[in-house]
Design a protein around this nucleic acid. Structure first.
Lengths: 202, 202
DNA sequence: TAAATTCAAGTGGTCTGACCACTACTTTAA
DNA sequence: TTAAAGTAGTGGTCAGACCACTTGAATTTA
């Protein structure tokens, strides 16, 4: 019946690896112990270790180099998202929640920016006008979040944003985003929030 | 040189599985071929197949039942988001950042509650007064976040909250938290935010 | 006949040991 | 001094072996 308690070896390994990273405060580019070493130290077979490593590799958290080793990687979930997209039939509720949270985070971002020292957004406006990529929203907010100077905050938004990839913006949106930035620049919070709303309601 | 093109077996397997799912239009609950079957059909070893399966299992896309088989699962981004968050959060993060983000999530929580339909907080106030545990903050906000009806939002806060292990509340805090809830009840946002601030500034 | 038991086949879970391919470094030879 | 060859360590992959578990059929029992 209630069998869910069975923890698999590869999951334990996963946890141990995470702990190892934390304990040795490894960061981007650092090398993990070899598969054989991990297997021995964690008292697991190399296969199990590999299952764990492959899993977090797919998540984009590590990178393996044949003949060299396994390395921590800067987290970039792009390929994960692509992968997921092909597998997933998204559920409406879920999608709604994702967007709601994203919206929330962005509101706070704007609020933070406005309540901090005034700064110029000239460059951002220019680069927005010239932006030619797929996802204007991501572009603009990446820039805005970076200004907030809270790495964690940025990462969380980034994470959510990647999962809520939905409709790609059409050209009309340029105006909306530029208005938004202008509102931020003039430190008008309620106007900025309204601009953001209009983007979401579209 | 251009070595990046080296595709690993487990990635090919992954792709084939995806194609299989698509071709047979499998959906939630349907069973995939057994590991041994997949290995044979895809001309790979069982280990490689398992590496692929473990990876997407970790992503939350499939579910394996010992002795039964491997099944497609309803996809919940929470799972992935949570998983990734545990890694992201373990990267060097200052306590200040954690608290700032937590604070900010809580502000949004209050804001959401206040802008939604009015509700009674009588029970919450009572149980807060009687609360006898270690962490009043967690208690009160767990309740508040649940009222927001966005599971993802709740989970993110929960994660951050766990990592920002602060602390011990002294009795004086009871008043602060009760005031906070009262402000929410009377739908007075600015007052609620102020109450929250006073908790953080303490 | 109906119910309980036993048993066999199929499945995932794990481990071992073996090669191969690649990299970086050391040793050797020119 | 420099170039080449060798070597040790690493990830990549595979084959095969058990084990634990589930299911359903065959068998036994009531």
């Amino acid at each position: 019946m209630t069998n869910t308690s069975k923890i698999k070896v590869y999951q334990e390994v996963l946890d141990k690896i995470r702990q190892f990273i934390e304990a040795n405060s490894l960061s981007e580019g650092d090398r993990l112990p070899s598969e054989r070493e991990l297997a021995e130290q964690l008292n697991a077979s190399r296969s199990s270790v590999r299952e764990a490593l492959r899993a977090i590799e797919l998540l984009g958290l590590i990178e393996t180099k044949h003949g060299e080793g396994t390395f921590l990687k800067t987290y970039r979930p792009y390929h994960t998202v692509e992968l997921l997209a092909t597998f997933v039939l998204r559920q409406p509720t879920t999608k709604h929640e994702l967007l709601e949270v994203r919206h929330l985070l962005e509101e706070q971002c704007l609020s933070k920016l406005i309540s901090s020292e005034q700064q110029s957004f000239k460059e951002l406006i220019d680069s927005t006008k010239q932006y030619n990529g797929q996802d204007l929203h991501t572009f603009v907010f990446s820039e805005l979040f970076e200004l907030v100077d809270n790495e964690l905050f940025y990462k969380i938004w980034h994470l959510i944003n990647n999962f809520s990839q939905t409709t790609y913006s059409n050209k009309l949106d340029y105006d909306r985003y530029i208005n938004l930035v202008l509102s931020v620049e003039s430190q008008d919070l309620s106007s900025a929030l309204q601009d953001l709303n209009s983007i979401y309601e579209k």
